[in-house]
Write a protein that binds this DNA or RNA. Structure first.
Lengths: 231, 231
DNA sequence: GAGTGGTCTAGACCACTGT
DNA sequence: CAGTGGTCTAGACCACTCC
């Protein structure tokens, strides 16, 4: 298996520090020539490397060496920015959209709302150390947003969400692998249908009322999920 | 994008019940001819479908339609067979190996053992509804296995583990995506380096002593991770 | 032994990125 | 505009599975 040899060769060059984290690899054509093979075989090698999280691809821009993963505990934390801060990673949250929506059936169930309730949807793009790594969807029951200022800035909302002092004892999470949607591919600079890690969180406040449904769709090489109840 | 059209066509045939769960799809060559394309393009379509969990591949045997996912809560449950029973799925656990090993550094840490401790390793292959879906690694501190009979049968050990009545309040989990090892590829009939969902669990008993480190490597289209503290 | 997927070659054209 | 990755063609040989 030629592609495994190539994979190992590139992997070794990364591990021995020939390529720095975040650095772009040579083009597929250059690499194919280097290893005297075709682009198809070379891409096979790169795809396998990407699965292990060592490198990632940006649409039409090339292959890059992954940086260290952010450790995230979705059972304790609903805010990636907070996790970044603790781990001294640079985080920027870019608001993509904010809408008032009729709650879907699933939202009604998990947020325990009455039929035809509205939710506030907020979609954000999360950058860690300059790289686009995740798209975050937040759904908040409309009645709970009346407490909030109508400022759309993420930071304000985030702080307010945190002020709810949610009860981490009552927290439901769903984790899975899904192909990126069009919106996610575009926002994250991925080729359509790329693999994303999907994290669904339902957070409740102290009085056991669910107040937030959050979905994070992230690059699997950027986040390490460590789930525990005790910090 | 031709491959997306093909993907959608196959997906529709599956959704409308033209292919039953577990059924084998026509061969790549046949499908390629059907859609008047090459195998490479067709495989691109199949790979994208596989990412969404609709189909899966067995090494040199072909592509199959996925069955319903098993819902698994690793925060509450350390036994896939138990989850299968509750969800009325047929589960068979096949013991692959059982050894006494010197604990690695990681095991010493998570199991809170003194240096140079030994652990009992037990590797099993899990079948659900006749399909090989996961490889399970269990590591148990040797001193705790003295309580157990030396019968190597999985069922006995499983029952004994359950009799520990582990404390689900104290439970740590790690979830990630990794390429299959050689052992895992062979056991699960996968091509080398296929994507697996990796679930790491550390379970403690009521006296807060960790007694089990378990790693499950499973096909992502076979298991749905729903994590919550309350059942 | 026929058929399957696994791997590979040697090209090609396109849409898009970066300069 | 040059270069990149995205997609595609039209083959080929091999190791393995299934009959």
């Amino acid at each position: 298996m030629q592609y495994l040899t190539i994979k190992d060769a590139i992997e070794e060059q990364i591990d021995t520090g020939m390529f720095e984290a975040g650095q772009k690899l040579p083009s597929e054509r250059t690499l194919a020539e280097t290893f005297s093979t075709t682009r198809i075989t070379l891409r096979e090698a790169l795809n396998h490397l990407a699965l292990s999280g060592k490198i990632y691809k940006e649409e039409r821009r090339g292959w890059f060496v992954s940086t260290a993963k952010l450790i995230f505990n979705p059972m304790q934390c609903i805010d990636i920015a907070e996790a970044c801060k603790e781990q001294k990673r640079n985080c920027r949250i870019e608001a993509l959209s904010s809408h008032r929506l009729l709650a879907t059936k699933e939202m009604l169930t998990v947020l325990k709302l009455s039929p035809f309730s509205y939710v506030k949807q907020q979609v954000s793009l999360i950058h860690i150390d300059g790289r686009r790594v995740a798209v975050q969807y937040r759904y908040i029951p409309e009645e709970m947003t009346t407490l909030l200022s109508h400022d759309e800035q993420t930071d304000v909302l985030t702080q307010l969400l945190n002020s709810f002092e949610y009860d981490s004892e009552k927290h439901e999470i769903e984790v899975g692998i899904i192909p990126a949607s069009q919106l996610e591919s575009d926002a994250l600079n991925l080729s359509s249908g790329s693999m994303l890690l999907s994290i669904n969180q339902v957070a409740c406040n102290k009085s056991q009322t669910p107040f937030l449904l959050q979905t994070i769709r992230c690059c699997h090489d950027a986040i390490n999920l460590k789930i525990s109840q005790t910090a």
